Amino acid sequence: MLSKIFGTIFFLSLLGIILVIFQGGATSTGQVIFSQDYRTPGSSQVISFNDPATLKVFQSNLQANRPDYYAFQGAKDSIITIKLDTLRLAGQDNFSPSLALFGPGLPPLTPDEQQLFPFSLPAGYGLLLSAESTPISQTTQPTEQPTRFDEPWTQSGYWERQSILNQLLEDGTYYLAVYNLHGQGGKYALFVGDKPEAGLRETLTFPVTWVRLHYWFEDLWWPTFALVVVGLLVVALLYLWGRNLGKSFSQPAPAVYPAPDEPAPSPVPAADPLPEMKTAPSADESTHHQPKTTDLPVVTQTPLLNWEEPEKAATSLVQVAPSPAPDLASPELKNGPVREDGLTEWGKRFRP
């Protein structure tokens, strides 16, 4: 019983530690959103999101000569924080996309400046570029080495490229545009908001997010190793659970003992044995073995009847003394006593 209690406590403690780790990872990483799950490949569909103050990370792959757009509802006097990083992968050292924010209340563009962008602005909207973005008139690639950034929970590596920190002057719909003036494409991460929060959904799905990020960064070794280890642990737990379940079915039912205050149940009296059946000895056995008088019940023997005096024999039980052996040649023994009417005594008795 104690082993089961300690086992349950250990299991719940281990589960709590795992959930705390998942919560910390999900909070630090933010709400990771893969744009390919919401955008058709090869299109320029706008991805809309709510609450721009909460940290969100959009993982996307910029297509050559095709900007990516994001939209959100901004409130007046709210501060918006946006950062654009590129993934630290082979072949992306010189990939530096630009970041633009346009919406109501922002500085308007002249018609000449408008023609330099690969997108058009809605009427009444102004544009704000990041301070690190390439100037509109510049056509060469930047040569400075960007700052390196490593995310500890997901082991993700980035190059810090662009950032915007601005206070919105009006309420309305604002758009973010990620583009490249040189027609290059590559993978990037768009960070929106600066308040890390993680709900139950982000906490429970953090292992899936961790695996997807490693595959997104083309790091196949760690997620494959983690999946193998988790699979072995699951198989081991299922084996132990099945083994304990089999033992519980094979164990006999526990004996039930009375409580100390309750009297013990009286034993059930044993049934009386059946009396031994005895048979009377045969004629041959009686000549060789005579049983004791205590072994057999007492039986009263009926004396022989006197056939010569049937009336007396019927009313009186008298033991007849033994007589000498009869003469077989005697006519009386052969036919019985002769009467006056010429019939013998036996003939009269059996005459119809």
Rank of each mutant, 00 (worst) to 15 (best):
T86M: 05
P108D: 09
E151C: 00
R66F: 09
D112Y: 05
W153L: 11
R66S: 08
S120Y: 03
L116H: 12
D150A: 12
T134S: 03
P111A: 02
N65Y: 11
S137W: 13
T54H: 15
Q115T: 15
T134W: 05
K56L: 02
L128P: 07
T81G: 15
G103W: 03
T134A: 08
Q92H: 01
A53R: 10
I47F: 05
G91Q: 00
L101S: 03
I79V: 15
F49R: 11
T140N: 05
T81W: 12
P122F: 01
S156A: 14
I47Q: 10
L84T: 06
L106K: 00
G157T: 14
F72G: 07
L116I: 14
F95I: 03
V57P: 04
P152A: 03
S120K: 11
D112H: 08
W153C: 06
L101A: 05
Q141G: 00
A100F: 13
A100R: 07
P104W: 05
P107L: 07
S98W: 07
L129D: 15
T140H: 07
G124W: 05
T147K: 13
G105E: 00
E151L: 07
P97Q: 03
P146N: 01
E144R: 08
G105Q: 01
R88T: 13
F102G: 01
F95H: 07
N94G: 00
W159H: 13
P142C: 02
F95K: 09
Q59G: 07
A90M: 08
E132A: 15
A123M: 12
L128M: 14
Y158D: 01
T81Q: 11
L62V: 03
D112Q: 10
K83F: 06
F117L: 13
L165Y: 14
S96L: 03
T147S: 12
F119K: 10
R66Q: 14
L109K: 08
Q73T: 13
L165H: 15
A71N: 07
I164C: 08
Y69A: 07
Q114K: 14
T140Q: 09
L62W: 02
D68Q: 12
G103N: 06
D85I: 11
F119N: 12
I80A: 09
Q115W: 07
G157K: 15
Q73N: 14
E132Y: 13
A90E: 10
I80W: 06
F72R: 06
G124S: 05
T143E: 13
A71W: 07
Q145W: 12
P52A: 12
W153P: 12
S130Q: 09
A100W: 09
D85Y: 13
E160K: 14
F49S: 09
V57C: 09
L62S: 04
R161W: 05
Q162M: 11
D51G: 08
N61H: 12
W159F: 14
L165R: 15
S60F: 04
K56H: 07
E151T: 08
Q155W: 14
Y158P: 04
I47V: 09
S133K: 06
V46Q: 02
I80D: 02
